[in-house]
Design a binder for these strands. Structure first.
Lengths: 255, 255
DNA sequence: ACGTTAATCTCGGTC
DNA sequence: GACCGAGGTTAACGT
């Protein structure tokens, strides 16, 4: 009675090209995650085009067909392919070559495996529960429930109100009955946030008569962005992204 | 005489917590890339906060201190930490726990390894040559050399001209002597590109007398963005991001 | 399929 | 350190 399939399915060290090909063929379309360390050469063509000369790299192939080629630095892969439509392995001139293609956008990544130090097939199982705190969506919910954190007397009329293109984070009315467009940012707000707010305020002004205010609500704002906002008659209000956590919860004992 | 250090340094399958700890301690700060497959629980706190319940995951630890935790889908890790200041492994309640911290922004990722199926230490060597074609920088160079691709009679005065904040991609003069601000996009241009162009044009108009034109040069543009551009008196010119490749080069024989 | 936006965006450059 | 903008951004969501 195998309730939890074994995570480590198969692994080879320093396989020959033939052995590697057989390994890949056996696992490529088996809802399995593959990990390969080796010397590799990568060609990419699609929205752009790139070529990486032979070098030691780490490949990751997930069951959704996504492929990533990692170098020795950084979180970002050197080359990648998100969710492919077609994945194949062939022998070309004595080397295993991986093809990862997708349409829309039409892109192909071609990986030539010159040498393989280790290849492993794993079963990563289902995704486990994941909770994120401090997203803009959470901030939006919290402020919709407690709009006084933005301004006293504010009444929220709508969330994610679609106006022309794009959605207004919070659409509200202030104590004097003026309409208020609120744009939220979970981090430091920059030019882009001010422009976004300005665009929404303009759109609302075209549709409703009377005064319309624009408020940028964020935990911080860049100095230039604040100037631009003020020059455009838009307001900035400081709000915290993460709900205040009681001091006790931060004590190391609870970790 | 070891000119190329061996890529595969060490590997364990199903190590005990003690063996895993020893393995990690031995390799963590040895300019080595570590790969670990196992059941894992992750806490993150910093710009936001997250927790991931125990699940099968794949860890990547690079010599620059970057850490990523991959699930069964997507290019993006479930949790990550780019370039840490401090990395450590300890035994807590019978489980190996990894800490990856950085200041600025102050963030910490804590990975509890409940079970380890495989852990491998690799040497990924130096980065190999990487060439990317079709970046905006390349496009900028190409169009600066051949501005007629944007418009006949255009003379490029400057590239990346700093005006207020941000840089104008191409600053030019047209056949009639009017100043032209060109904003480039390597892909489809959207609202943001139009706003960016508008901002630069406004900044130039404040500094020079006379008519100032704004041209958005991109291989494509969204319909709404085109409308906004036209309404704002800005122009759109279609230019290809990738230099035209001769048909022969695309023939499969050359692959 | 298209358009828009958030993201723990990452990453690099410049002031 | 702050700020800005590119990115093969990715990924999710809505129409």
């Amino acid at each position: 009675m195998l309730r939890c399939p074994p995570m480590l399915i198969d692994s080879l060290t320093h396989p020959t090209p033939d052995a590697l090909l057989a390994f890949l063929r056996a696992h490529l379309h088996a809802r399995v995650t593959l990990h390969l360390a080796g010397e590799v050469e990568v060609l990419y063509a699609g929205r752009a085009a790139s070529m990486a000369e032979a070098g030691d790299r780490l490949l990751l192939l997930k069951p959704d067909g996504s492929l990533q080629v990692h170098g020795p630095r950084g979180v970002k892969p050197v080359n990648w392919q998100p969710r492919t439509d077609h994945l194949s392995a062939e022998l070309e001139g004595g080397c295993v070559v991986l093809h990862a293609e997708r349409r829309s956008p039409a892109e192909v990544v071609r990986v030539r495996v010159i040498g393989c130090a280790q290849v492993t097939a794993l079963h990563l199982g289902d995704e486990a529960l994941f909770l994120l705190q401090g997203s803009e969506a959470q901030m939006q919910r919290a402020l919709a429930r407690a709009p006084h954190l933005i301004e006293d007397g504010l009444t929220v009329l709508d969330r994610e109100l679609l106006v022309g293109v794009g959605g207004i984070d919070l659409y509200a009315r202030d104590a004097q009955g003026r309409y208020v467009v609120v744009e939220l940012k979970r981090g430091k707000a920059g030019h882009d946030a001010v422009h976004q707010l300005g665009r929404y305020v303009d759109a609302v002004r075209e549709q409703v008569p009377g005064n319309v205010r624009g408020i940028l609500a964020a935990p911080d704002i860049t100095v230039p962005a604040l100037k631009v906002a003020q020059a455009a008659g838009l307001e900035y209000v400081k709000v915290e992204a993460l709900p205040q956590v009681p001091e006790e919860a931060l004590q190391p004992t609870l970790f």
